[in-house]
């Protein structure tokens, strides 16, 4: 945060160094760029190429079929349902993550005994391998032995003989996968927002306290606007992680019941790898990419613009 205005200093004075440094910079950057071009760029182009072809898992030859795969996808109800599910899944979970992350970060911002322990415990969901954490939830949501249902029955909320099948009923299944996604991403968003809170200078809080500004006004007119850039970053990562992830859904519901929790990334996996239709799988997986890029550019621009210095 202290190095903002340094750029101007280094420009002057060392003319003969500049040429060298340019090449050194390129040289140091080259391995990363080569790796990324070879192992992200080329496969990505290959994915686009596949999406315009009729390649399958077994086939050795492939033919160019133009936009056929995309046309076929746009005609399928499953695709539209998955697109809608992706949006619902992402928007609801990220809204919850940002709101809860703010509350939790503000609670953690205060000093209290045992703070490091609380922070350690809260970080756990982010650190555990997602596939294994999701299996933990699978057991919590078990249709017969669910601990939630046991507690519900014990407290008299659920009748002794009927209880919710968390992952087997359409709306409940969506609510359940959203909950697991919130559980997994809340820690990241919390620590990012917490870092933002710590970077707000104490004088601002002091000045507000002297002026006698109440808690809510201070929250909405001072704290949240100052947090905005960092919150946008947290949100961007949350959106990217949620949209591109299929593990939670793969482990918990496999997209079921009746595709009500199918999202684009899981649909691409089931179509491309389990169904063997690589071309259509590639086409589905490519669908969200332009949207993600737009969201990322928008958020990064906003984050830079709203930064208060």
């Amino acid at each position: 945060m202290q190095t903002i205005s340094r750029n101007t200093i280094s420009k002057g004075g060392r003319g003969h160094f500049l040429e060298d440094e340019k090449w050194l910079g390129r040289f140091m950057l080259a391995p990363a760029v080569i790796y990324i071009v070879a192992l992200v760029g080329l496969p990505f182009l290959l994915a686009i190429y596949y999406s315009l072809s009729d390649v399958t898992v077994g086939s050795r030859s492939l033919h160019f079929v133009g936009m056929d795969n995309f046309r076929h996808i746009l005609d399928s109800n499953t695709f539209w349902r998955s697109l809608r599910n992706t949006l619902v899944f992402t928007l609801v979970s990220q809204l919850l993550v940002v709101v809860l992350g703010n509350i939790l970060a503000m609670a953690l911002y205060k000093n209290f005994r045992g703070k490091w322990l609380v922070r350690f415990l809260i970080l756990l969901p982010w650190v555990a391998p997602i596939s294994l954490g999701s299996i933990g939830w699978l057991w919590i949501f078990d249709p017969v032995y669910s601990v939630i249902n046991w507690s519900g029955r014990a407290l008299g909320i659920f009748a002794p003989t009927t209880w919710p099948i968390w992952l087997g009923q359409p709306n409940l299944a969506m609510a359940s996968v959203i909950m697991v996604d919130v559980w997994r991403l809340l820690p990241l968003s919390t620590v990012i927002i917490l870092a933002g809170l710590s970077s707000i200078p104490q004088d601002i809080h002091d000045a507000a306290a002297v002026d006698g500004i109440g808690f809510w006004r201070r929250l909405f007119q001072i704290t949240l606007p100052l947090l905005m850039p960092i919150m946008l970053v947290a949100l961007l990562f949350g959106i990217v992680f949620t949209v591109t992830d299929m593990i939670v859904i793969y482990v918990l519901t496999r997209g079921g019941p009746y595709d009500t929790t199918q999202v684009l990334s899981s649909l691409a996996f089931f179509t491309g790898i389990q169904g063997g239709d690589l071309a259509e799988g590639a086409a589905i997986s490519l669908f969200l990419f332009p949207l993600l890029v737009a969201v990322a550019i928008l958020f990064l621009t906003l984050a830079r613009r709203t930064e208060v210095t």
Binding site: F44, Y50, V240, T244, D245, S265, A268, F269, I273, A296
Partner: peptide, 10 residues
């Protein structure tokens, strides 16, 4: 933003 779900097929 190019997730494994796009790249694992190629």
């Amino acid at each position: 933003l190019i997730p494994p779900t796009i790249l694992f097929i190629p």
